[in-house]
Amino acid sequence: MKLAYVMTGERGATDLLLSRFARTCLDRGLPVAGLVQTNTEIEGAHHCDMDVQVLPDGPVLRISQSLGTGARGCRLDSAVLETAVGEVERTLATRPALVILNKFGKREAEGGGFRELIGACLAEDIPVITGVNALNHPGFEAFSAGLATRLAATEAALDDWLRATLDTAACVA
Rank of each mutant, 00 (worst) to 15 (best):
V32H: 02
G73P: 01
C74I: 01
L35I: 14
K103H: 07
G105I: 11
G112Q: 02
L101S: 15
V80L: 01
Q65W: 00
L61W: 01
G111V: 07
T154D: 11
R20S: 12
I42D: 13
T130N: 12
L147Q: 15
T168M: 05
V80Y: 00
V54E: 10
L35T: 13
D125P: 05
T69C: 12
T14H: 03
R90M: 09
T149Y: 00
D49Q: 08
G12S: 11
C171Q: 10
G9R: 02
R107S: 14
P56T: 03
A22T: 07
I126G: 11
A164K: 07
G86M: 03
T69F: 08
A120G: 09
E87N: 13
E10G: 10
E89R: 15
V54D: 10
D27P: 06
A93H: 04
E116L: 10
L122W: 01
R150T: 09
S64T: 12
I63V: 05
E41R: 13
G86S: 09
E155Y: 04
Q37L: 13
P127F: 06
D125T: 03
L26H: 01
D15K: 07
A169R: 15
A79I: 07
T165H: 09
T69K: 11
A84R: 02
V54L: 06
L3Q: 12
I118H: 06
R90A: 14
E155I: 05
G29H: 04
R72Y: 05
A134W: 02
V99R: 03
V128P: 13
E87P: 05
Y5N: 14
L81S: 02
V88C: 12
K103F: 08
T8H: 03
A169D: 14
N136G: 08
T94Q: 09
C171I: 12
A71I: 03
L81E: 01
A79T: 08
L18C: 09
R62H: 01
T38K: 08
F114H: 11
L98H: 04
L98P: 10
D167Y: 14
E41M: 04
L67P: 00
T14W: 01
D15S: 14
I42Q: 13
N136M: 03
K2H: 14
A145Y: 04
P59F: 06
F104S: 15
L162N: 04
G9V: 07
E10T: 15
V52C: 07
A173R: 10
G139R: 04
A173S: 12
A134L: 11
P56N: 08
G44H: 01
R115M: 09
L117C: 15
A156Q: 10
L76D: 00
E82A: 06
A145L: 11
L151K: 05
L122H: 03
L26P: 00
T168C: 01
S66L: 11
A4I: 09
L3P: 14
A109K: 04
K2S: 12
E10Y: 07
A157D: 02
L81D: 00
A84F: 00
R90T: 08
A156P: 06
N102W: 03
R75G: 05
E124R: 15
F143S: 15
K2I: 04
T40R: 15
S66G: 14
L17I: 09
P138K: 03
A84M: 08
L26W: 07
T130I: 11
A93P: 02
L135Y: 04
V85Y: 01
V6G: 13
P138Q: 06
P127I: 05
G113I: 05
R90S: 14
G86C: 05
